[in-house]
């Protein structure tokens, strides 16, 4: 695990702030192009989910192969409360988050006693079970016919019905989410997690209640996903269970792996790369192989996943930060501190 304390605690807000400003300005450049706005909005939803997931996998060292379930819980709860029960949007989001926390608690308590691969399998199982509920609970969810007519999101008196408005909404949520995650990492909880990650036995020896912290992060990651799902439902106004099946969970996992698990920006970077690569493939592949279609994407991401896990298990974000650091430290002419030169990074532990 990262033993570079200066890097964690003294990280300035400058970088992230600049990034935030850039993101907020982008829509003004692409104002009339809803397609580009939509792409960024989708990245936003995914980023929210993957940031929570990164906390879980990277910092708490646990694997979830069923996170789409929480995404779906948020979506369906919001849909139900706003469309069927005609309540204001914030109630839907709140209740969704509460349900997601409860479900994750119920799942988490027994599951965290299991090790590595059993844990993965258990989360997979829960994902399928919850998916089955979405399918079968027809009176509430509409079953496989889908859920229609979800009203636009209405918060603080504004009704978010255009891509332009939604862009700002989701990206503010994303940055809040990352900021919050950062605070956790820098807090007592975060230190406890790092310690657990380093050695569970040692942590127990100094009195850290492992399961409690793992559980907290699991619930938190569920809430992230649920909020993302609620916003998503209002954006697309039509949802169906197939959006929340096992493959979706695996795609989230791919994003986290690509982005890098030791880094709070990993989720966002992974989501962005995933979406951009997808769109890029859509443009390029037909030109090289005229009769191809979506299958190439599947193969490509499969290969990418394998390659990254073998050769860059820390994901891409760490590499990017190294790169940026090298550039900026060249500018500043400061000697790169001995502490920050090598970083062991974190990876998925048992």
């Amino acid at each position: 695990m990262d033993n570079n304390l200066t890097k964690i605690y003294n990280r300035s807000l400058k970088g992230p702030l600049i990034f935030f400003v850039v993101i907020m300005l982008l829509p003004f450049i692409f104002q009339s192009n809803n397609y580009i706005l939509s792409t960024f909005i989708m990245i936003g939803f995914y980023s929210l989910v993957t940031t929570g997931l990164t906390l879980l996998i990277g910092y708490a060292g646990q694997i979830s192969l069923g996170h789409a379930a929480f995404y779906g819980i948020g979506a369906y709860t919001s849909a139900y409360f706003t469309a069927t029960l005609q309540m204001p949007s914030w109630i839907g989001i709140l209740v969704g988050a509460i349900i997601a926390s409860l479900v994750s608690l119920i799942i988490g308590i027994p599951v965290f006693k299991l090790k590595g691969h059993y844990l993965a399998l258990a989360t997979l199982g829960f994902g399928v079970i919850i998916f089955t509920f979405f399918k079968e609970w027809k009176t509430i969810t509409g079953g496989l016919n889908g859920f229609f007519g979800i009203p636009p999101l209405s918060l603080f008196g504004i009704s978010f019905s255009t891509d332009f408005q939604f862009y700002f909404l989701i990206w503010i949520f994303v940055f809040l989410g990352i900021f919050f995650a950062r605070n956790i990492v820098q807090s007592r909880v975060g230190r406890a997690l790092m310690s657990i990650h380093g050695s569970e036995i040692a942590s127990e020896a100094i009195g850290i209640n492992i399961n409690k912290y793992k559980l907290q992060i699991f619930v938190l990651s569920a809430v992230y996903a649920s909020i993302a799902g609620s916003l998503y439902a209002h954006y697309v106004t039509f949802i169906n269970p197939q959006l929340f099946e096992m493959m979706t969970s695996i795609y989230f996992l791919i994003m986290v792996v690509i982005g890098g698990i030791g880094n709070i920006w990993g989720g966002l970077i992974g989501a962005a790369i995933y979406v951009f690569l997808g769109e890029l493939l859509k443009d390029i592949v037909p030109k090289i192989i005229p009769n191809a279609s979506g299958e190439f994407e599947i193969v490509f991401f499969g290969v990418l996943l394998v390659v990254i896990l073998i050769y860059m298990p820390n994901g891409i974000s760490k590499a990017i930060f190294h790169f940026i650091k090298r550039i900026t430290s060249n500018f500043k002419n400061k000697p790169v501190s001995a502490f920050s030169k090598k970083s062991t990074g974190s990876d998925i532990h048992d």
Binding site: A120, I254, V299, G302, D347, I348
Partner: peptide, 17 residues
């Protein structure tokens, strides 16, 4: 030498391929 979980995900990637 990677963890079981990493290998698990690698097999998922291979399955996609």
């Amino acid at each position: 030498n990677s963890s079981t979980a990493t290998l698990l995900i690698i097999t998922i990637g291979a399955a996609f391929v």
